[in-house]
Design a protein around this nucleic acid. Structure first.
Lengths: 206, 206
DNA sequence: GTCTATATTGTGATAGAC
DNA sequence: GTCTATCACAATATAGAC
């Protein structure tokens, strides 16, 4: 039933998505042209409009996909029955690995959520991200006098900040503090995992 | 000697700069059109090319100006003869004030240095930013056994991360942790000054 | 120094053949 | 489902009048 000149449509659609993902993440929404994406996917411009109605829709698909990449792995750790200290160690280490494997994503996401914050509304609903889980288990341990009393939201923001910033600001930091030596900065980021975990854990101990 | 229809050229040039600064910082290089800048400045498109040769040159002027805004105030603190602890407290407080007065700048700078890291080369040479000053005074105190032995570069990155990230990622953090309540998040950021200083200082004590 | 008019190219998007 | 051809418009940039 399938003629020889036909190709699995799912194949083409995913190729477009992958191509769009690469180009959008690298250059942002405004910095990307439909032509660039078509070239990257090895197909014609018109096909982009056939599968995704317009540039905006295509971008939304890509952005939602990229955004969700960062959620589930954290979620797994959050719902585990480990202590807060153990959770922090795992989260910092795994999250920094994830960031280093997707170096350009942080700056991309930061830029796009500032360009159009409303986009978050649609996406956040589907992620099912539940920070309350973490906040709750922190409060439990806190009340048992095992942890210093503090607003858990500072803890969360600190963790994100210490992991995300060094990657998002790499061009600047690597240049100012490491003579723009990429290999040197990579080693710094690796040893940083222990450093950040220590820093965070120390901040919640009495 | 000045005819009535003539206007101080310096006046026009600075008006263009101010207009370009607003629009570029808000929408980024690719997201900004020369028409938008001309409208914002209340002049004609052609005048932009008269004063600055092209869009790229105009952007470079704006970016260099915006970037340098964040340097001198830190510099003053770095060269002072205060102890490291005092320097940290002042830096965190004053830097977060600076960031909050220019909320959109961090995401803008992060995006643009990733889009074109080479731009930093030209700018960094003129800033005269000397991190060695801070690193040195930290090493001195460290050797006197007053401070925990650690790589000062972690300290610097931590400080920057904890201050910059909550501002650059406001749309996301405010939405997830503060039900998108701007006033609530502002208070959180204010009380955060003390928190961050405490975190940092605690991390360098033996 | 400032404007109008225009050149030139690039862009997102659609129509229609196959 | 995929392509070619093309539209309609927007973008940067320049020429030239005043």
């Amino acid at each position: 039933m399938v003629k020889s000149h036909e190709v699995d449509p799912t194949m083409t659609e995913s190729r477009i998505m992958e191509a769009a993902r690469k180009v959008f993440i690298l250059h942002g929404f405004e910095g990307t042209t439909m032509q660039q994406i078509a070239d990257q996917a090895g197909i014609n411009k018109s096909l982009l409009h056939y599968y995704f109605r317009n540039k905006e829709k295509l971008f939304e698909s890509v952005f939602a996909f990229a955004f969700r990449q960062f959620v589930p792995q954290i979620q797994d750790i959050l719902v585990s029955h480990a202590t807060v200290t153990e959770k922090i160690e795992r989260m910092v280490s795994e999250y920094m690995d994830l960031l280093l494997k997707n170096e350009i994503l942080p700056a991309f996401i930061l830029h796009e959520i500032n360009r159009n914050p409303d986009r978050l509304y649609a996406i956040m609903q589907n992620t099912g991200l539940d920070v309350n889980m973490f906040v709750h288990s922190f409060r439990v341990e806190m009340e048992q006098n095992k942890l210093r009393p503090m607003d858990p939201r500072h803890l969360i923001v600190n963790m994100l900040a210490l992991c995300v910033f060094p990657v998002a600001a790499r061009p600047l930091v690597q240049r100012v503090l490491f003579s723009n030596d990429t290999e040197l900065y990579n080693r710094f980021l690796q040893e940083r995992k222990k450093e950040v975990a220590r820093f965070i854990i120390q901040s919640i101990q009495v």
